[in-house]
């Protein structure tokens, strides 16, 4: 990593993602706990008080939430393992999906509705996936709450583009974390060999296959 500032900002980003995930997992566990509690209630309370309660509902809740937690932890594990090696081979679409899923709770709270339009045939590339996720996170952080965000990926012989189109404005100067400064975005771009262009209501991130890594 190029500078202490980028290193610190990246650590803050990881902290933020883990905080969002643990919040989500606590919610899954809370539903599991209430559902098992409701099943135990059915054993403890009299039949008259239990009228209208279907046992299949809490059982379905437990099953669904355990599955949610399990897929979530798999993504979190993959996210953390991206730090094992500074440079590695990764799929752009999977990388974006992983980040968006981990940030889902935060995006819901910010009332940002995400739509994805991925090019299906993008070959895996070699590069710095952890910093690329940080870069995407910074751009998403800059977008104002309440509105739609469209994430598009395209592929050509020389470049891969990640386009983030949004209908709302950009936050005025600062952001919640204060880590996603223009200077850090520029530095992160340089690490992942990307160029960022800010158009009207869109960020276009161009990754040069030859520089950023080989397909």
């Amino acid at each position: 990593m190029n500078s202490d500032k980028l290193y610190r900002a990246h650590l803050q980003f990881i902290g933020k993602v883990i905080a969002i995930c643990t919040h989500d997992i606590r919610n899954h566990l809370a539903i599991i706990r209430e559902s098992t509690g409701l099943i135990m209630d059915t054993l403890e309370f009299s039949r008259s008080k239990l009228q209208g309660i279907e046992i299949s509902k809490p059982l379905n809740n437990i099953d669904k939430q355990a599955l949610k937690s399990s897929s979530f932890l798999a993504l979190l594990s993959s996210f953390c393992h991206r730090l094992d090696h500074e440079s590695s081979v990764f799929s752009i679409n999977q990388l974006i999906d992983e980040l968006l899923t981990l940030l889902n709770r935060n995006l819901i709270q910010r009332e940002i509705e995400v739509a994805k339009d991925y090019s299906e045939n993008i070959q895996p590339i070699e590069g710095h996936p952890a910093i690329l996720q940080f870069l995407l996170f910074c751009i998403i952080e800059k977008i104002e709450n309440k509105g739609a965000l469209q994430v598009i990926t395209t592929d050509s012989n020389t470049n891969i583009q990640i386009i983030l189109k949004y209908e709302q404005g950009l936050k005025d100067g600062s952001n919640d974390l204060m880590i996603c400064t223009e200077a850090l975005i520029e530095e992160a771009c340089s690490v992942v060999s990307a160029q960022v262009k800010i158009g009207p209501k869109e960020y276009v991130l161009t990754l040069n296959k030859a520089k950023g890594g080989k397909t």
């Binding site: 919610n27 209430e34 409701l38």
Partner: peptide, 16 residues
């Protein structure tokens, strides 16, 4: 609570 499974299950436990 926006987690409807949590809210509805807890409500049922309190109703009981």
């Amino acid at each position: 609570d926006d987690e409807d499974e949590f809210g509805s299950t807890l409500a049922e436990r309190l109703l009981i």
